[in-house]
Computed example of a mutant assay.
Amino acid sequence: MSMMDKLKNMLKGHEGQVGKGVDKAGDQVDKRTHGRHRKQVDTAQERLKDQPGRDSGQRREPPAQP
């Protein structure tokens, strides 16, 4: 079992707390970069929030572009 699999197993059931942590980290990045990379940070936050609830074999479709 890889380290990522172990981390995912530990985080299962705590998606709400993971989401809060991801939001907080993204806000810090936005603050330190003065919002220059906000779009990329938002995309990373969305993808990270989806990770804990997924099995390693599942694939996620990219979000539709508005």
Rank of each mutant, 00 (worst) to 15 (best):
G16I: 02
H37E: 13
D27P: 03
G19I: 01
V22W: 01
Q45P: 03
T33L: 15
D27Q: 14
D42G: 07
D42N: 11
K24D: 07
G35M: 11
Q17D: 10
Q45T: 05
G26M: 05
D30S: 11
K20F: 09
G16A: 09
D30P: 03
H34D: 08
D23H: 05
Q28W: 09
A25V: 12
Q28D: 12
G16Q: 07
K31W: 07
R32V: 10
A25L: 14
E15D: 08
V29T: 06
T43E: 13
D42H: 11
G19A: 09
G19Q: 02
R38K: 14
A25R: 04
H37P: 02
D42I: 03
H37T: 10
K20I: 10
H34E: 14
V18W: 05
Q17R: 05
G16K: 08
G35D: 11
E15H: 02
T43A: 14
V22T: 07
R32N: 15
G16E: 11
A44E: 06
V41Y: 03
D30A: 10
Q40R: 00
R36C: 03
A25F: 13
G35N: 13
H34L: 14
A44H: 05
Q40K: 13
R36L: 15
R38Y: 03
G35R: 12
E15C: 03
G26D: 01
V18P: 02
D30C: 13
D27W: 05
D30Q: 10
G21D: 01
V29K: 05
R36Y: 13
K24C: 04
T33V: 09
G19N: 05
G19K: 04
E15W: 00
G26N: 01
A44D: 04
V29C: 11
R38I: 09
V18Q: 01
V22H: 01
T43S: 09
V22Q: 03
K39A: 15
G21F: 01
G16W: 00
D23I: 03
K31R: 15
A44N: 03
R36G: 07
V41R: 03
Q28F: 12
G21N: 06
T43W: 05
Q40V: 07
Q40D: 11
Q45H: 00
H37R: 04
K39Q: 15
K39T: 14
E15A: 10
R38Q: 13
E15L: 05
K20C: 11
K31V: 08
A44C: 07
Q40P: 00
D42R: 07
K24S: 14
K31D: 13
V41L: 09
V22M: 07
K24R: 11
D23E: 14
R36T: 11
Q45W: 00
D27V: 02
